[in-house]
Simulated scan of single mutants.
Amino acid sequence: MRISAQFDAGNIEVVSAESANDIQLKVRKDNQSEFLQWFHFRLQGAKNQACSLNILNASECSYPDGWKDYNIVASYDKEHWFRIPSRYDGKTLTIEHTPEENSIYYAYFTPYSFERHQELIGHAQNHAQCEISTLGSTIDGRDLDLLTIGQPDRNKKKIWLIARQHPGETMAEWFIEGFLGALLDDSNALGQTLLKQAVFYVVPNMNPDGSVRGNLRTNAAGANLNREWQTPTLEKSPEVYYVKEKMQETGLDLFLDIHGDEALPYNFVAGTEGNPSYSARIQNLEEQFKAAFIKANPDFQDQYGYDKDKPGQANLTVACNNIGETFDCLSFTIEMPFKDNANLPCKEFGWSAERSEQLGSSVLHPIYSVLDQLR
């Protein structure tokens, strides 16, 4: 029996694996950081054995409430992922499972590999209206990819989407894959209409270094990118530095930052209510966007979410707030669950990559609903 994590996005430490019925594991911290929660590992040689996998430091993870009512995902082929019941006793996360094959992968959520990221942008550039450019290099030397979709025109709206500032929130790039599939579908009338009126700037993965390293929230320098937007630096947060620099060049009318939330079992948005410049115009756009999103996809809701910031009390190091304030624009963080959507639960798959893609494709509707009113 063998447990390994030396692969793209792998993360686990083996404490003891001498017996299948008492496998003891720990989640490894993000490099140069105290964040920890993402895991992804392979178990070999335990076919038809009743396994008990115990993550001993679950209570020490960054979001221990995330383990309540949570079930991990597993796959035999890294393509089809399903949920396995998990049990959290306030200290240890325990997974009891009998693998049907000799090799099986377990993860916190369905992984989105760097290879798939490269395939995603490669496929996107096949569309006549999509161009790939590299904004700069990450700390580990990877390309920070930007997709520019639509013919730039000073009269068109400028819409930015970014994903995976927090690399362990893989549902964010699944969302982007669904979004791109709809927008770049020549038979999708809504996508084609949007491209006549807007240019889209999309960064599918803001944190490729953290993604490959198997981090939850940080880049190769240990920086939480979603707290770097006020004063990004090339030394600590080049990813944010390059993106914000490009935004200044293009201008911006609508910003969506795609994330996942460990604890809340819902899809929701967080806006810019606490920004100093927050206005009735932005509030009306927010309400219109949310109402259209609810109609477009019942997986989205607006009853549960984060507490709204008090007026003038927004944290301007956060992307959504900073960009909303900088450009006086409609700006949202979109959050998806690691667990399931409690309003529409699915026992076998929970919230999944497939549902993340569907939510991404349906976001075209709320974008269209506010497009003419963005300025």
Rank of each mutant, 00 (worst) to 15 (best):
G324Y: 04
F82E: 13
R42D: 12
D302Y: 00
E325S: 13
N155P: 00
T231Y: 11
E287V: 03
K290I: 12
A198S: 14
H40R: 05
S277K: 01
I162K: 00
R142S: 07
A198W: 08
K196I: 00
K196H: 10
G260V: 03
N297V: 03
P276Q: 09
T250N: 15
R154N: 15
L264C: 00
E235H: 12
D140A: 15
E177K: 14
Q118H: 07
D253Y: 02
I3S: 04
P232M: 05
P111F: 09
M336A: 09
I149V: 11
L344E: 03
F268L: 05
I334M: 12
Y306L: 14
T272H: 01
V243H: 01
E249L: 07
N54T: 13
L190M: 15
N275T: 02
L184K: 03
T326C: 03
F268M: 08
G350C: 07
E249C: 01
A189E: 13
P204M: 01
D65Q: 12
L316I: 11
V243F: 12
L43T: 06
P298E: 02
K29D: 09
L180T: 03
V203A: 13
L264I: 13
Y70D: 08
E228D: 07
N322W: 13
M206R: 08
N215R: 05
K244Q: 10
S369Q: 13
M1F: 11
N11H: 06
E18R: 11
F327L: 09
I294N: 00
D257T: 04
L120E: 08
G305Q: 03
N315R: 14
Q44Y: 11
I132E: 12
K244D: 00
Y368P: 02
S52Y: 03
Y88F: 15
D302E: 05
F293Q: 04
C329E: 12
E354F: 00
Q6C: 05
H166S: 12
A280T: 11
F200C: 10
P238Q: 02
D261M: 06
L364F: 08
V370F: 02
D209G: 06
W67G: 06
N315P: 01
L359Q: 09
Q301K: 02
F349N: 09
Y241E: 10
S279R: 09
F114R: 09
W160Y: 14
F332G: 07
A342T: 08
T326L: 04
N321M: 15
D302W: 00
R28C: 07
S369A: 15
K246F: 12
T272N: 05
Y201Q: 10
S19K: 06
K295Q: 14
S113H: 02
L374N: 07
V15K: 10
A58S: 11
F200W: 12
A263S: 15
I367R: 10
F293T: 02
G181E: 14
A163N: 01
R213S: 09
W67L: 07
A20C: 08
T218L: 03
V203E: 11
S103D: 14
I23S: 08
E34A: 13
D186W: 00
D89M: 14
C346T: 05
I72Y: 01
R87A: 14
S52F: 02
K78R: 15
S33K: 06
E273L: 06
K290F: 00
A220C: 00
N267E: 10
S187A: 04
D143E: 15
M247Q: 06
N315F: 13
A124V: 06
